[in-house]
């Protein structure tokens, strides 16, 4: 479904002399339908940069991203936005809820970002129930705990029933018990037929959902890791 080849992003840093370096360096990666893929890497290894290129937000210096065989970087902004809105569910790194909207509106938001017909409120409430926070629908993001906010972001990513869910360190700053619960939700989502691309720290990786295919990222380079996750939930 999703295939990246030779994906590279070059950045320049360091005041006057501007040294060029590759934050992402010749990455090949595939995600098949209904599969769960996990990318593990230390902070600064280029994980978020990779995800931004995979989702058409950040233009690669080199390489291609294909979705169902089509080069997404050949599309216009309207097409790429529409694709991101319908086929991809994205859980960004960190706190990403819109502070000015309540939980229900945050979840409904992606539905309204493209032209659509139909009712959404009932679906949004069902998604909130699925992630276990139906009672918080009327709250504002500032009133939520970190774990609750992640659940809202997850419900929001799922609202348009995407084919691929992408999560950038979805449990980055959560305690172990909460991390466990969220990972269970991912396992359940994969069970429903949605592919999941999960980006995690080393620490989180230990508790990646069962059956995940794992890549390891170091200094912008991606390598497959043969050992499957041992632990089950």
């Amino acid at each position: 479904m999703l295939a990246a080849t030779g994906l590279t992003k070059e950045y320049r840093r360091g005041g006057g002399r501007r040294v060029a370096f590759n934050a992402v360096d010749g990455v090949d990666l595939t995600v098949a339908k209904g599969e769960i893929v996990s990318v593990v890497g230390r902070s600064g290894s280029g994980k978020s940069t990779l995800l931004n290129m995979l989702t058409g937000l950040l233009r690669p210096t080199a390489g291609a991203v294909l979705f169902d065989g089509q080069d997404i970087w050949g599309w216009r902004d309207a097409e790429i936005s529409r694709w991101r809105n319908t086929k991809i569910g994205y859980m960004p790194q960190g706190q990403s809820l819109l502070a000015n909207l309540n939980v229900l509106d945050n979840v409904r938001l992606p539905f309204f970002l493209a032209r659509r017909d139909g009712e959404i409120t009932a679906k949004a409430l069902a998604r909130l129930a699925q992630v276990g926070i139906a009672h918080l629908a009327a709250n504002f993001p500032a009133e939520l705990s970190g774990g609750e906010a992640r659940r809202v972001a997850l419900a929001r990513a799922l609202i348009n029933a995407p084919e691929l869910l992408i999560a950038d360190e979805p449990t980055g700053d959560l305690d172990l018990a909460t991390t466990n619960e969220i990972m269970k939700l991912f396992a359940q989502i994969v069970g429903d037929g949605t592919a999941v691309l999960l980006v995690t720290h080393e620490a989180e990786a230990v508790i990646s959902p069962t059956g995940a295919r794992i890549y390891e990222m170091t200094g912008g380079k991606l390598a497959g890791r043969d050992k499957k996750v041992m632990r089950t939930h």
Partner: peptide
């Protein structure tokens, strides 16, 4: 950027 991630066009 969150709006863009969720599929809002630049125009939107």
């Amino acid at each position: 950027s969150v709006l863009r991630l969720l599929g809002a066009t630049r125009a939107k």
